[in-house]
Design a protein around this nucleic acid. Structure first.
Lengths: 151, 151
DNA sequence: TAGAACCTTGGAGTGCACTCCAAGCAAGCG
DNA sequence: CGCTTGCTTGGAGTGCACTCCAAGGTTCTA
């Protein structure tokens, strides 16, 4: 669990996941919920805990998200898939808000995350091997039915 | 998110993860905790919720785990890594207890799990691509420092 | 201008997977 | 035998990541 030089030639363009209407830059919370797959509740919660880099408001106080916010949310959603704790993502968001002098720490955080993701992939491939082994056994036992496997 | 014919040529032997002393077949709960990395609390909890296929007891009622139990726990630990809900693992354990006529359902459950794991790996590889992209950006910006990336 | 559908807030509730506790019995050693 | 360490139970507590609620203000469509 350390090797696996996972190739990443798919989708190596700029991180823009969910389709969104062109020429618009102010979205209500429910529009953003539709684009990202997150609920409005979750979006408000993200803002509360400091995971959103301060969202714009209309003159009456309603949230108006921008394309930049959508980019950020797409990135956060990717990180979420890795099982990265929300607290760590908040940390990264804080570093961004603090400006240029956190550059190096951000880079290190990203690199640590990448190591975690690679390890995670290696683990999953190990599990896949076990599943393949067991499924092969089931397929074999189907042809010569005799005993029912103990795990 | 559906492709990725993940190769699984590593560790494709019989599923036996943690080293254990030869010629022994009765382990106390703390020994099992040491071998598996699970806590004694968790092992008791697994039994309570029906995830252990009925553990043997000493004449005074203390648990005595067997090598077969260790095999099962190794398998469960693998499944746990995939993020499979405990309830689903309990379901599989129930099917095992119910005997031969659940053979097909068990096979299907394993195959569904394998699909999930493959999808998970594909997702992670997508995330890895995003991380690589961003880390490359950071490395480039280090050589020509000018602006600090917005996500 | 009415009504429906949407948005706001703080705080409380949910589900999962553990994790711990207290009180008491069991096992092994000098 | 006494002592320490380990094991037993049901039930309560924890941490995470949401998820929902009530009461009220806003925006859109007819």
């Amino acid at each position: 669990m350390e090797s696996t030089s996972a190739r990443t030639d798919i989708c190596a363009s700029a991180p823009r996941a969910h389709p969104r209407p062109a020429g618009q830059d102010r979205y209500t919370i429910s529009e953003v919920a539709a684009f990202t797959g997150l609920t409005a509740h979750t979006l408000r919660w993200y803002e509360r805990i400091g995971l959103m880099p301060h969202v714009d408001r209309s003159h009456t106080g309603q949230r108006r998200f921008t394309n930049r916010d959508l980019d950020w949310l797409a990135f956060v959603s990717k990180l979420r898939l890795t099982g990265m704790p929300v607290a760590d993502m908040v940390r990264y968001a804080e570093l961004l808000r603090e400006g240029d002098h956190t550059f190096e720490e951000r880079q290190q955080l990203l690199e640590a995350t990448r190591r975690d993701v690679r390890n995670r992939i290696a683990e999953l491939q190990g599990t896949l091997a076990v599943l393949d082994f067991k499924i092969d056994f089931y397929a074999g036992a189907r042809r010569t039915p005799e005993r029912g496997l103990t795990t």
